[in-house]
């Protein structure tokens, strides 16, 4: 686009809007802290948090990496597990009827209560944290994919019957692609849940020594009354959540863009 056209185009304000809102909120926060003289150990100003983040970035980055590993590890396992189990359920309705209640039980079990128990039974702390985050993250993927695998258009199903497709062909060429939008929707939900699960599990059950994630750093800062550091670690967590959200939105656009109504640019 020519520069003049760029300025006039309506895309710019729309794209800048979220950033402007965020900056506005941060400015308001800073203003409130300064005018009300709120002490740093109660509510630090964004400028102080930023300073602390930069000053401690080396050590916080290590913990950030640990949390990222657990989050994405659990998410990958939830994808594989959720999709596999959903495919099994699709191929065998009796299996689905038998095992779906188990899945529901896993979904509703509060991770806060279960995490300490898991940590007792499982040897490795990393495995225990992965398991906790997996429990939280896998159900949306499973549930959505199961629905998706049933969502193929009735006429398309007839078409495949007409051409005598084998069950495997049906699964691969019809049901799985039809399930993709639902799977991606589940993935978007599970992305955030996986982060929450990893953080909750670490907060409740704790991690040790060198393998500490951001949740442990938040706790440590809170115990040592280092509130700006706590907020710095929290800011990294929030950034991770936002990054996951953007990532899966981009993934959804890439996978579904050319053909699914949810990614269509036409106004509703």
């Amino acid at each position: 686009m020519r520069p003049a056209a760029l300025w006039r185009s309506s895309a710019w304000p729309a794209r800048l809007l979220p950033a402007l809102v965020l900056l506005g909120l941060l400015a308001a926060w800073e203003g409130v802290v300064r005018t009300a003289h709120i002490p740093a150990y109660t509510l630090p100003a964004p400028s102080l948090v930023a300073q602390t983040l930069v000053a401690n970035f080396g050590s916080l980055a290590g913990s950030w990496w640990v949390t990222l590993k657990i989050t994405f590890g659990a998410l990958a396992l939830a994808c594989i597990g959720g999709a596999l189990i959903a495919a099994l359920f699709a191929l065998s309705p009796t299996l689905e009827r038998a095992l779906f209640p188990v899945a529901v039980v896993l979904q509703v079990t509060p991770i806060v209560a279960v995490a300490p128990l898991i940590l007792i039974y499982v040897e490795s702390t990393t495995a225990a944290l992965l398991l906790c985050a997996w429990i939280v993250a896998f159900f949306p993927i499973l549930s959505n994919t199961v629905i998706g695998l049933r969502a193929a258009d009735a006429n398309l199903r007839d078409l495949f019957r007409l051409y005598r497709a084998t069950p495997w062909q049906r699964l691969r060429l019809l049901r799985m692609p039809a399930a993709l939008p639902y799977f991606v929707a589940g993935l978007k939900i599970s992305g955030g849940l996986s982060l929450i699960g990893a953080v909750t599990a670490e907060m409740v059950a704790g991690a040790a020594g060198r393998e500490t994630g951001l949740a442990s750093r938040i706790l440590e800062a809170s115990f040592r009354t280092e509130t700006p550091k706590m907020f710095a670690a929290l800011a990294l967590l929030v950034a991770t959540g936002v990054m996951i959200f953007w990532l899966f939105n981009a993934l959804s656009r890439w996978l579904l863009g050319p053909w699914h109504a949810s990614e269509s640019s036409r106004p509703l």
């Binding site: 300490p116 940590l119 007792i120 702390t125 059950a205 704790g206 991690a207 040790a208 020594g209 060198r210 706790l219 440590e220 115990f223 040592r224």
Partner: peptide, 27 residues
Amino acid sequence: AKDGQFSWWQWLKVLHGFKDEALKPYN
């Protein structure tokens, strides 16, 4: 426990040779 992990455990590690590998959260 977490309280100790972030305070006197450090003292035990530095001055008395305790190791992080052995630490597991006490609930």
